[in-house]
Each structure stands twice: as C-alpha cells, then as structure tokens.
Simulated scan of single mutants.
Amino acid sequence: MDLRYGTNPHQQAAGALPAHPGRWPARVLRGSPSYVNMLDALNSWQLVREASRALGRPAAASFKHVSPAGAALAGAVDPVTAELYGVDPDRVGALTSAYLRARDADPKSSYGDFAALSHPVDAELAELLTRVVCDGVIAPGYAPGTVESLGRKKNGRFLVMEADPAFVPPRRETREVFGLQLTQQRDDRELSASLLDDLVCGALPAAASEDLLLGLTVLRYTQSNSVCYLRGGQTLGIGAGQQSRVDCTRLAGAKTDTWWLRRHPAVRSLAFRPEIRRQDRINWQIRFVEGDLTPDENARLSAALAAPAPELTDDQRARWRAGLDGVAFVSDGALPFRDNVDHAHRHGVAYIAEPGGSIRSAEVADACREHGIALARTGLRLFHH
C-alpha cells in the first residue's frame, strides 16, 4: 500500500506491507493515509477492540500523534457535552455516546483527531463525524450510505478505514531503526479485572474496577511515560510521553481539572456570539478556565462574547475543584515516589492501579493510606514506544 508521505511531508516514497503476505489488519475505503495516519489507526483500533472486549460495551477513542487524547465506553452524555455538540442526551445512541465522551476528555487536543470505534459506524455517528474537525475514522464496519457521506468530508480527503475484527497479529513484531531491525514478542497479555486482585489498601467498587481496567487498556496504547485519570467509564485527563512520571501526573491532572471546571456555572454561562465556531468556543472556555489570559486574549474573548464574561476567581476555581471525587488513576509503570499520589489526590483520585515493584513502593502505599486511596498492584508494566 502506498502512503501519501512518511512521518513528515518531505519524507516521500512511503509504503506499508503486511507482515504476512495477504493478511491485512485493515483496508482503506476512502482517502489516502499517511504514515502517521496508519499508526493512529492501528493503535486506536487495538485500544477500542480490547476495551470493548474486556468491559462488554462499545468503546471509542480520539487519537492524536499516536496517543489517545481521550477514550471512553458507551454511557451517559452529560449536558455540557450534549450542548457543545448539539445532541439530545436522552436520545443519543451508544456508539455516538462513546465517541462524544472520548472526544470531550480533551476537546482542544481532539481537534483534527483520528476516531476509532469498536463497533460498526451507524448513521447517527457518521452524521456527527461530518460536523466535527476530524481527519479519519477506523471501525469494523459501516452502515449503508455512511462511507459515501464520510467520503465527501474534507473535499474527499477524509480517511475511512475498515478494520478486520478477525485479524490475529503475529506473535513477534519487528521495526527498523537507523538500519537496525529490532524484534520482540508482541504484548498480548490479556487485560482483565484479575489484575486488580492484589489490593494493598482500601476497597474497589465495581465501577472503580471498570475505570481502572479501562485505564490499563488506554495506557497500553499511549506513549510512555503515561498516566490517566478516569471516572464513569471515560478518561478525564491523559498524560503521555513525559520523561518524568510526576510531570506526567501533573499534566494529566491539569487536564482533569480543566474537564471538571468546564462544568462550572460561570463557564457554562459564557454567551458566545452565534458566529463563533464550536472549536473556538472550546478553546476560549479552556483559556477562561485557566485564568491567565493576556491583555490581547482578554480583548479577543470580549469580542467573541455577546455579554461580558462572568467572574471566576481563584477561590471559586479551588472550591469547584474540591467537588471532584471518585476518580481512578492508572500508571503504565511503577510509581517511583509518593509525590505522584500526593498530586493525584489533589484531583479527586480515590483509586489507583500501578505495577508496583519500586524501591519506594512502601512509601507509595503509605501515601495512599494517608489520603484514603485504594491501591491495586497489577504487577504488569505497560510501556508503549
């Protein structure tokens, strides 16, 4: 298969070949993929397939730069998300709900995402995809007429891929780096609730176990170091690719706070002018939440509003953040210091799953007991590079 270009447009003559002749994991129905498109498609498809199989519900992911911006199971769509995307929360279908919840985790990053669905795309979801800024989609099938409608998006450049749910990858995988072939056994360890059996402290309700299991699946396909915060079957904040794990924890925690603060009455009451587009509204909501607008940004935000912005003080932000609780936290590698727990606690975390095995694991467990956080040790590292 010819690709439009490699990782960057100047890297030409890009292509893709199956590891075993004739055995393709997915096929292109519309559009022409790039190298990164293929990485996003194949990684995101594996994530949603595994999440759906493990948890028994439709799953969706919103991918950017070979890591998920968000991932979710089908579930209730809250009023903030429903209003933003113009859907009726009481009538939205399961698959559409999964994608909306995945995309709303970090809607700033999901701009121009690659969407992945565990189940065939129906007419409702196809219609939504035509209305959002999205570069492509991968799913195991498409309802009649949906490929054609999606294929018209982006002047025919929207990428539509169909995954083969029966495809079984080879046990060993190989990549070439700087003239050297690296080979390893594929990470095919089954992710199940039994990984949470080693409960060091606290208790895990069924909903928390589901969130932790979803988090493990998400991090298996997120660039390491990685952590994620989850609640209610969806990610709230994902931190990826940081050299320091606590930096990753803080980054994902800041995204979690932003997700929660976007539900604050002051943010919901921002009255944008009708001509202001959805993504611009999202970006302004986030900047308003962050609270460090430059003078130029303040002027541009005022111009985008039909009425003056309400007050949102630091004290109001702090009091609203304190209302977030019941959050699950998952780390792809062992927590090396208790500072990860201390920071996670600030973002409503009540449940943690991590491999354990650090020389300071006892301090990590003590921190969890101190903060009243349940801790499960999985014994399984999930680095992804």
Rank of each mutant, 00 (worst) to 15 (best):
T7N: 14
T7K: 11
P9M: 02
H10D: 14
Q11F: 11
G15I: 07
L17I: 06
P18E: 13
A19T: 10
G22I: 05
R27W: 11
V28T: 09
R30Q: 10
G31Q: 01
M38P: 03
L39H: 03
D40P: 01
A41Q: 02
L42G: 00
N43H: 14
L47A: 08
L47W: 04
V48Q: 00
R53D: 15
G56K: 03
P58I: 03
S62D: 12
V66F: 12
V66G: 04
G70Y: 02
G70E: 09
L73D: 05
L73V: 08
A74L: 08
A74Q: 03
V77L: 08
P79A: 14
A82Q: 10
E83D: 13
E83F: 10
L84P: 02
P89F: 12
V92C: 00
L95G: 12
T96K: 04
S97C: 08
A98V: 06
R101I: 00
D104Y: 01
P107M: 04
P107Q: 02
S109C: 13
S110Q: 10
S110G: 09
D113T: 04
A115D: 00
A115L: 07
A116H: 05
H119F: 08
V121I: 12
D122K: 02
A123P: 01
E124P: 04
L125R: 01
L125K: 07
R131I: 01
V132D: 00
A139T: 03
A139V: 04
A143M: 08
P144W: 07
T146W: 03
G151V: 02
K154N: 15
N155F: 15
N155T: 05
F158A: 14
A166Y: 06
F167W: 09
P169S: 08
R171N: 13
R172E: 13
F178K: 05
L182Q: 07
Q185N: 11
Q185K: 12
Q185P: 04
D187W: 02
C201W: 10
P205I: 04
S209Y: 04
E210H: 09
L214T: 07
S224M: 12
L230S: 02
L230D: 09
R231I: 14
G239Y: 00
T249F: 04
R250I: 14
L251P: 09
W259M: 11
W259K: 07
W259S: 07
W260V: 04
R268M: 15
S269G: 09
P274V: 03
I276H: 06
R277G: 04
D280F: 00
I282H: 01
I282G: 05
R287L: 00
F288C: 02
P295R: 04
E297R: 07
A299T: 03
L301H: 03
A303L: 08
A304N: 06
P310K: 00
T313C: 12
D314L: 06
R319N: 12
G323Y: 09
L324P: 05
L324T: 01
D325E: 15
A328G: 09
P336Y: 14
F337W: 13
H343Y: 15
H343C: 14
H347C: 11
H347Q: 03
Y351R: 09
Y351M: 07
E354N: 01
P355I: 09
V364Q: 08
G372D: 10
R381F: 07
L382V: 02
H384S: 14
H385E: 15
